Simulated scan of single mutants.
Amino acid sequence: MSDSDTKTNWPSSLDDRELDELDAYLRTHAQESEGHLLLDGVHGLLSALAVGPTQVLPEEWLPEVLHEPFADEAEGNRVLALLAKLNDSISAELDVDAYEPILGEVDTEAGPVLSAAGWCEGFSRGIDLRALLWEKRLADDPSLMELLGPVMALAVDEGILSAEAEFEKLTDDEYDDCLAQLPAVLATVNHYWFEHPATEAELDALSRADQTKSEPHAPPRHRSGHWVH
């Protein structure tokens, strides 16, 4: 493959300036008490959707990310364009083994260290958007749970998930090892659902569950701007 072909096929990910811009927007509009996702959480959410069993449309995941009306149409178009690019880049990065999770940092006595808390929170919410399919398959196929082991370990360690049995906190080395495994985990889970797609019975159960969802008392979230297609 020539250098020009490599450049052409390499995924178009957000550059540092665009990441900072999206990060700033999310931080400005986040409320910690509401559990709003920041950039690492949004990346975790979109990562779960990218490797999951079925497509999840923007109409379904955008309400997990955006919670207030945009200031104007220009702001809305810009934020949605950045989110669309971030979303598209994940699948493209997985295709060429270039995926890296966007992680947060926490301050410690030894200095700032990487934290998977936000990413794991987002990943968990991404799974929740197709909870029926994930939960049934995890229950029926232990191999999928095994593939997700490093993600589960980080999520339990960070308090995102509760462990059924007593769970010892990860050592620093174990934590770092789980972080290092995330790209491979995403690749193998993506391959798993490609090789073992959701069955008709699983999809029928999901469809029936969607049809029974009705919350007339809950007003829709309002936003200006356009949906990403």
Rank of each mutant, 00 (worst) to 15 (best):
Y99G: 02
I90Q: 02
F70V: 06
V185W: 02
G159C: 04
S124N: 13
W134Q: 01
R130G: 08
P142F: 06
P11E: 02
V42Q: 03
D16H: 00
S115H: 03
A30W: 01
E34S: 09
P69G: 11
S214I: 09
M152R: 11
V113R: 09
G104C: 05
L154Y: 11
K169E: 12
L103T: 10
S207G: 10
R27D: 13
E32C: 01
A209D: 14
E32H: 09
S162E: 15
A201M: 10
P142K: 07
K169I: 00
M1I: 13
P11H: 03
D107M: 12
F194A: 06
D16W: 00
R17S: 13
E121N: 10
S4T: 14
E109H: 05
D20Y: 00
T199E: 07
Y192A: 02
D72V: 03
A116M: 06
D5H: 10
K213H: 14
A201E: 15
M145E: 03
D107T: 11
L26Y: 07
S89D: 04
H67A: 13
A48E: 02
A218E: 15
E100I: 10
A201Y: 08
L57Q: 10
K213F: 15
I160S: 04
S2H: 11
W193F: 14
E135A: 10
P219I: 07
E93K: 02
A48Y: 04
L80P: 00
D3F: 12
T188H: 12
H43M: 00
W119M: 02
S13G: 00
D95E: 12
V56H: 03
P197G: 09
E105R: 09
V185S: 04
E215Q: 12
T188G: 00
T188E: 15
A165V: 08
L133E: 05
S13A: 13
Y192G: 00
S89Y: 04
E135G: 05
D40A: 15
E168C: 08
V151Q: 08
D128T: 05
A205Q: 11
S143P: 01
D88H: 09
Y175G: 03
N190S: 13
T188I: 02
D5W: 11
L161W: 14
C120D: 04
K213T: 13
S115P: 01
A131M: 09
R130P: 02
V65F: 11
L62D: 01
P11C: 05
L132Y: 00
S89M: 04
A50C: 14
T108G: 03
G126E: 06
A153F: 11
L62F: 07
